[in-house]
Lab assay of single mutants.
Amino acid sequence: MEVRTIKVFTTVDNINLHTQVVDMSMTYGQQFGPTYLDGADVTKIKPHNSHEGKTFYVLPNDDTLRVEAFEYYHTTDPSFLGRYMSALNHTKKWKYPQVNGLTSIKWADNNCYLATALLTLQQIELKFNPPALQDAYYRARAGEAANFCALILAYCNKTVGELGDVRETMSYLFQHANLDSCKRVLNVVCKTCGQQQTTLKGVEAVMYMGTLSYEQFKKGVQIPCTCGKQATKYLVQQESPFVMMSAPPAQYELKHGTFTCASEYTGNYQCGHYKHITSKETLYCIDGALLTKSSEYKGPITDVFYKENSYTTTIK
């Protein structure tokens, strides 16, 4: 009895394709271990004539594949690729409408935090270190965002349907971005203890939790000093293409032309909904596939993004 075979390709990165001759009487799992086709788990399936010449994702289970996976995804987590594939199996079914010149995501599976993050990423200057993220990001900007969303979920250790947080998501993504040249110098002034300067680099240099107003941050924000008295913390120097200011959701007025974009969060910790506000020729609110415009805006804002380049204080 002759062994019926077909020729397929296996890959971990969709760049390096490895030619395989597979036995049609055995499952993919018996031949390769966990195997995925377009995100779908085909591990328990036997090869079919229609699979001839198709590319299958496999887990990096030998040295060659491990090197290829690390170079593309910059992670050695053995569960990463499987999590990416199972997320992709959902995100490829989502709709990605162009809204006001940006790629958004039609609401499904509690994905409003991903839509808000995706919209924000198209408006701030950011370059990702893992080629996987950078490639998928370019495709997302062009309207094909399924891979990018699935990668975000995998890097953030999230599953489809789980509630997510924009600030946490951005923080994970910033860790995989090139923020080497970003720098922030802060000064804390206390009447009792004097003053202390701190220099922050990388992710810490672009994120701040405690106030939404970048102007206020430049002037000074009140913080408790270690001595128990009130101290003032203010920005001395900022070198970065953008800054992200966050605070627990509270009524906040966004003035046209003073910011790049913002995240609105309605609801409580267990259950809520994100919308995205962007400042173009007027203010726009993007909620999944829905767009509304207004000249002014007041609502429960939790993150505001500002364009920056270089700032030095005039406070002496």
Results as ranks from 00 to 15, higher is better:
Val3Gly: 11
Val3Ser: 13
Thr5Gly: 12
Thr5Trp: 12
Thr5Ala: 12
Ile6Lys: 07
Lys7Gly: 11
Lys7Cys: 12
Thr10Asn: 06
Val12Asn: 11
Leu17Cys: 15
His18Pro: 00
Val21Ile: 14
Asp23Trp: 11
Asp23Phe: 11
Met24Trp: 14
Ser25Asn: 13
Ser25Phe: 12
Ser25Pro: 05
Tyr28Lys: 09
Gly29Ser: 09
Gln31Leu: 14
Phe32Pro: 03
Gly33Ala: 11
Gly33Thr: 07
Gly33Gln: 06
Gly33Lys: 06
Thr35Lys: 04
Thr43Asn: 02
Thr43Met: 11
Asn49Tyr: 13
His51Met: 07
Glu52Gln: 13
Val58Glu: 08
Pro60Met: 09
Pro60Val: 11
Asp63Ser: 15
Asp63Met: 09
Asp63His: 11
Arg66Trp: 07
Glu68Asp: 07
Ala69Arg: 07
Ala69Gln: 12
Glu71Leu: 12
Tyr72His: 13
Tyr73Ser: 07
His74Leu: 10
Thr76Leu: 14
Pro78Trp: 14
Ser79Asn: 14
Arg83Lys: 13
Tyr84His: 09
Leu88Ser: 05
His90Leu: 09
Lys92Asn: 08
Trp94Tyr: 06
Trp94Gln: 05
Lys95Glu: 14
Tyr96Cys: 10
Pro97Ala: 10
Gln98Leu: 15
Leu102Glu: 01
Thr103Ala: 08
Ile105Glu: 02
Trp107Arg: 01
Ala108Leu: 06
Ala108Lys: 08
Asp109Thr: 02
Asn110Ala: 12
Asn110Ile: 09
Tyr113His: 06
Leu114Tyr: 04
Ala115Ile: 07
Thr116Gly: 07
Ala117Thr: 06
Ala117Asn: 02
Leu118Glu: 00
Leu119Val: 07
Leu119His: 13
Gln122Asn: 06
Ile124Arg: 04
Pro131Asn: 02
Tyr138Gln: 15
Tyr138Arg: 15
Ala142Arg: 13
Ala142Trp: 07
Ala142Phe: 12
Gly143Arg: 03
Gly143Ile: 03
Glu144Phe: 06
Ala145Ile: 05
Ala146Gly: 12
Asn147Asp: 15
Phe148Gly: 04
Ala150Pro: 03
Leu151Asn: 03
Leu153Val: 08
Ala154Ile: 05
Cys156Phe: 04
Asn157Val: 05
Lys158Trp: 01
Leu163Glu: 06
Gly164Met: 05
Gly164Ala: 02
Asp165Leu: 04
Met170Gln: 04
Ser171His: 15
Ser171Leu: 13
Tyr172Val: 13
Leu173Arg: 08
Phe174Asp: 06
Gln175Leu: 08
Ala177Arg: 07
Leu179Tyr: 01
Ser181Asn: 12
Val185Ser: 02
Leu186Trp: 04
Asn187His: 02
Val189Thr: 14
Lys191Phe: 04
Gln196Pro: 04
Gln197Pro: 07
Thr198Asp: 07
Thr199Ala: 03
Leu200Val: 13
Lys201Leu: 08
Lys201Ile: 08
Gly202Thr: 01
Gly202His: 08
Val203Tyr: 11
Val203Leu: 04
Val203Gly: 07
Val203Ser: 11
Ala205Ser: 07
Ala205Arg: 01
Gly210Phe: 13
Thr211Glu: 14
Leu212Asn: 01
Ser213Thr: 02
Ser213Met: 05
Ser213Arg: 13
Gln216Pro: 06
Lys219Ser: 11
Gly220Asn: 00
Val221Thr: 05
Gln222Pro: 13
Cys225Gln: 02
Thr226Tyr: 10
Cys227Asn: 02
Gly228His: 02
Lys229Ala: 14
Lys229Val: 06
Lys229Gln: 11
Gln230Tyr: 13
Gln230Val: 14
Thr232Val: 13
Tyr234Gly: 02
Leu235Phe: 03
Leu235Tyr: 03
Ser240Leu: 02
Ser240Lys: 02
Pro241Asn: 12
Phe242Asp: 04
Ser246His: 03
Ala247Gly: 09
Gln251Pro: 14
Glu253His: 03
His256Ile: 14
Thr258Ala: 09
Phe259Cys: 03
Ser263Met: 02
Gly267Trp: 05
Asn268Gly: 09
Cys271Val: 10
Cys271Gln: 13
His273Arg: 07
Lys275Trp: 00
Lys275Met: 00
His276Cys: 07
Ile277Tyr: 01
Thr278Asn: 07
Thr278Lys: 02
Ser279Phe: 04
Lys280Phe: 10
Glu281Trp: 11
Leu283Arg: 02
Leu291Thr: 14
Leu291Asn: 03
Lys293Met: 12
Tyr297Lys: 03
Lys298Ala: 14
Lys298Leu: 06
Thr302Tyr: 03
Val304Phe: 02
Lys307Leu: 11
Thr313Asp: 11
Thr314Leu: 15
Lys316Ser: 15
